[in-house]
């Protein structure tokens, strides 16, 4: 349950952002990110539909390499 998925912000409407990862789009809540100045193209780590932290594109790439292995293992 504590898995966090890195996603890129495509659009922001209030506390809801349309985010993309690997061609999959999801609405993500930014309600827990009120202390961060987020903008389109930023990367966030998403857990149970909520962004929990901002990360760099490099960090997002590194994390996705791990998840790709996990998905392949499943």
């Amino acid at each position: 349950m504590c898995l966090g998925i890195p996603m890129q912000i495509c659009e922001i409407n209030g506390f809801v952002a349309s985010c993309e990862a690997k061609g999959v789009f999801r609405d993500v809540s930014l309600f827990m990110m009120q202390d961060e100045n987020l903008k389109v193209d930023d990367f966030v780590v998403v857990h149970v539909g909520y962004a929990i932290q901002k990360i760099t594109s490099q960090e997002a790439q590194t994390a996705w390499e791990l998840y790709d292995q996990m998905i392949a293992a499943d």
């Binding site: 349950m1 504590c2 966090g4 809540s29 309600f31 827990m32 857990h47 909520y50 929990i52």
Partner: peptide
């Protein structure tokens, strides 16, 4: 059910 990482979004849901 959940630890802090999951319970925090539940709190956010209530507060919102």
């Amino acid at each position: 059910a959940g630890f802090e990482t999951t319970t925090a979004p539940v709190a956010a849901m209530l507060v919102e």
